[in-house]
Nucleic acid binder design. Sequence first.
DNA 1: TATGAATGAGGATTCATTCAT
DNA 2: CATGAATGAATCCTCATTCAT
Lengths: 204, 204, 204, 204
Amino acid sequence: MAGTRRTPTQERSRRTVERIVDAGAAVLAESGYHQASTNRIAEAAGVSPGTLYGYFADKDEIVAAVIERVVDGFAEAVAPALRAAAGRPVEEATRLVLDAVLAGVEARADLIEAFVDRVPAERYAPRVDALRDRVSDVSYHLVAASLPSAAPADLERSVWLAVRTVEHLTVRYALGRPPIPRDAFLDDLATMIVGLAPTGPPAP
Amino acid sequence: MAGTRRTPTQERSRRTVERIVDAGAAVLAESGYHQASTNRIAEAAGVSPGTLYGYFADKDEIVAAVIERVVDGFAEAVAPALRAAAGRPVEEATRLVLDAVLAGVEARADLIEAFVDRVPAERYAPRVDALRDRVSDVSYHLVAASLPSAAPADLERSVWLAVRTVEHLTVRYALGRPPIPRDAFLDDLATMIVGLAPTGPPAP
Amino acid sequence: MAGTRRTPTQERSRRTVERIVDAGAAVLAESGYHQASTNRIAEAAGVSPGTLYGYFADKDEIVAAVIERVVDGFAEAVAPALRAAAGRPVEEATRLVLDAVLAGVEARADLIEAFVDRVPAERYAPRVDALRDRVSDVSYHLVAASLPSAAPADLERSVWLAVRTVEHLTVRYALGRPPIPRDAFLDDLATMIVGLAPTGPPAP
Amino acid sequence: MAGTRRTPTQERSRRTVERIVDAGAAVLAESGYHQASTNRIAEAAGVSPGTLYGYFADKDEIVAAVIERVVDGFAEAVAPALRAAAGRPVEEATRLVLDAVLAGVEARADLIEAFVDRVPAERYAPRVDALRDRVSDVSYHLVAASLPSAAPADLERSVWLAVRTVEHLTVRYALGRPPIPRDAFLDDLATMIVGLAPTGPPAP
DNA sequence: TATGAATGAGGATTCATTCAT
DNA sequence: CATGAATGAATCCTCATTCAT
C-alpha cells in the first residue's frame, strides 16, 4: 500500500506478509497497542525487523492490516444473512441478521477485545467507521422500503440508534459473557430494534 | 473554621494535587494516553517531575485520578434526577433520568472523548465498571419495585441491556453530534428502554 | 535554544552542556558527521543519551553548537587586528589582518578540518555564510573609504573575490601544510588582495 | 567496427553500469551522500540491489565512479584550451584557460554542487587531489618555461596559490551565481593569477 | 547474471522514574 | 517538600549488504 514498500508478488513474500499480520494480531491481542513493539511483532512472525518494514511503512500500517482483516472477515460472515433476510417479514429478518452479527462478533472475540480494550480508538476508528457507514446505508434502504411513508429524518434517527445499539450490545455481550441466554438476548435486542421503527408497531 | 488560617501545608498540597490532575486532564485530552508524558503533565501543572512523583506513585495513578474525577462528577450530576424520579410513573421517571444522564455526559464531553478515543480502556475500565455496577444495582431495584412479579433473570437481562444501551448511546450522541434533535433522541431512547421491561409471567 | 529543552541555569547544567559540546567537537573531529552518533557523543561526554536530549533538540543542534563555537572563537580572535588596522596604510592593514586570520584558522585547524572534510556543508554552511557576510560588509566599507571614487559594483566584485580567496587559501594553507614559508604565503596573499582594488574610474 | 553487432553481454553490462552511475549521480545530487541509499540508487537505475552489487563492491565505489566521471569530463573539457594556450602570451593564455575552466565547472554545476555541499570531502578528495596535482604539474612547467630564471620554490608557491584560487573561485562563482558579470570575474581572476608570477609583472 | 526478499546491527530519540541538592 | 538534572532501557525505523532462487 505505501510508497516504496514491497508489494508481495512472489509466493514467498505473500506468506511473509501473512505471518506478519498474524503475528501483529497475536501480539496486539496479548499486549495491547503500546506494548506491541515492532520488534516483538517481527520476532513473533519469525522475521527480522527490517523485513517487516519491507511491507509496512510503519507500525500503524500493521495495525491497520489487522483491523482490516477483522472487519473484512466480519462483513463476509454477515453478508449471507443479509441476503437471506431480503423479502422476509421484518421481525424474522431482524432476528436473522442479528444472529449473524452476533456470530460474526463471537468468531472474532479475541481480536475485537484486543482492539476495543487495548488499542486507542483513533488507531482503528476510520476502518470501523467505514463499515458502520456501509451498514447504516443498507439498513436505511431496507427500512425505507418497508416504511415508504416515513420521514427521512425519522428513518435516519432510527437507523443511527439501531446500528449503534446492535454494534455495542453484540460486542459487549460477546466479550463480557454476561449470564444471559443467547436467545433471550437476541430476542430482546430484536424487540428494541423493531420497536424503533418510525411509525411504531403495527396496530393489532 | 472558615476565616481561620491554618493547615497551610496541607492546603498547599491539596492545591498542588488539584493542579496536577487538572494538567493531567488537559494533556490527556489533547494528546492521548501515550503522548501524555509525565514530564509534560508536570510542566502543564507548573511543577517539577519530582514533585509529581511526590503525590502519585506512577503515571497511571494520575490517569486514575482524572477518570475518578470524571466519574464522580458525573454521578453527582445525575443523583438529583434519580431522587426526583422516585415514585413517578415509569415513562416520566425514565425520561427524567435519561435527560440528566445525557446532560452529565455532555458536560464532560471533552474528557470523555479523550478517554474513549485516546486511552486504552484497560487504563480506566475498572473505575467505569464500578459506576456501571452501581447504576445497574439501583436500576434493578427500581424496576423490581414496579414489576414485583417479574423473574429476577428477566430483570437482570433487561437492566443489562438498558444500562449498556443508555451508556453507549448517550456517549456517542454527545461526542458524535449526529443531526438528531435532542428531544427526539431522548424520546426514542426512552421508548427503547421502557420497551425492555419484562412483561409476561416468568418463563416456566 | 529549542522549545522544551532545558536552558542551563544551574552551574551543574552549564558544565554538562560544555562537556557535550566538547565531546561533540572531539567525536566529530575524529569520526566525521555520520559516524558521530549521538550515543557516542553522549558516551564521550560521560552522560546518558537522554541527558544530551535535555539540552539539544537533535543531533544537528549539537553540530550547530560546535560550529558556533568555532566561528565565534575565530571572530573574536580576528577582531583586535581589525581594530588595529584602522587608519593604517592599505598594504600594512591588509598584512595585519591576514596574519590574524591565518592565526585564527591555525588555532582551530583540527575542528575546521573535521568540518571541511567530514561534515556535509549543508550542516554548517548557514553559520559560516553569516560570518562571511559580516566580514564582507566590513571589508566593503573599509575599501570604499579608501577608494571613494570606485563604482559600487566594482567594489563588490573585488570584495567577493578577496573574501573568498582569503577564506579558502588560509584554510587550505593551515590544513594542507604545504612547504611554503608562512611569510611568503602571507606576502603573496596580500599582494593578490591589494591588487584586486579597483583602480580606474567607474566604467561609463 | 561500427555497424557490427557483437559482444552483446558485455555491451549490456556496460549499459547497466552506465545506468547505475547515472542513477547514483541523480540520487546523490538530490539527496546527498547519506540519504543516497544503495536501494534508492538501484531503484532509480531500474535494477535490483543485488545487481548493483554485481558491479560495485560497495556504496563508495559508486560514489567514486560518479566523481570519476565528473573529473574526467572536466579534464576533457579543459584540454583543448590548454593546447590552444601553448605559445600564446601569458595574459592571453591565462584568460583562455580560465574561460575553459569556468565553462567546465558550469557544465557540471549540479553534480559539483551535490558533491561540494552534500558529500563529505573524504569520499571524493583523493580523486580531486589527483586532478589538482596534474593541473599543478602542467602549470608549473608552463610558468617555468616563461620564467626560466625564477627559483623553483617561488614557482611552486605561485602555482599552489594560483591553482587553489582558480579552483575555489570558479566553483563558487558557478554555484553561488553572485551578481558579477562573467567577463569582469574572469578579468579579475586573470589579473590575480598573472600578478602571482614570481618576478612580478614585466617592466613596461 | 539478475532478482528481490531477507537480514540485523545500528541510529536517533523518548520518557517514566530517581535522587542529590 | 520541591527541584530539575540525570538516567538508560526501550522504541521505531533505516540501509548496506547477502543469498537462495
